[in-house]
Amino acid sequence: MKRILVADDSTATRSLVAAALFGMENVEVHRVSTGLEALKLITGLQIDLVLTDIHMPEINGLELVRMIRNGEKRRQTPIVVMSTESGTDDRQRSVLSGADDFLAKPFTAVELRGVIESHLKSH
């Protein structure tokens, strides 16, 4: 069983992602709405892939990526940042912070599955 953590402050996006992943074999989706909640979950549970938004309260997505990459455990967990490219430097910042991939919103279920499968496989 692979556990995927979805961090996004929009309930609709969380549902969208969960719906897109529904039917993927051996995948369990955990949803949280802030970076701090994500960090909390990760410290207690073996997570195989993190899918995170950037703009979130408490701790944002990029801060979350850095915290995970610098942590004692789970530092190798694949992280995919998802965000709308809004003229700022989201994509570049994500990669610099240590994310493995960047998924531009809006994305289709097929794109999302493709990205997730490739990271779960390569790991």
Partner: peptide, 14 residues
């Protein structure tokens, strides 16, 4: 900004 951003993202997905 964050809320406008969320609306934009989910509206385009929908």
């Amino acid at each position: 900004f964050r809320h406008a951003h969320t609306i934009k993202g989910t509206a385009s997905a929908a």
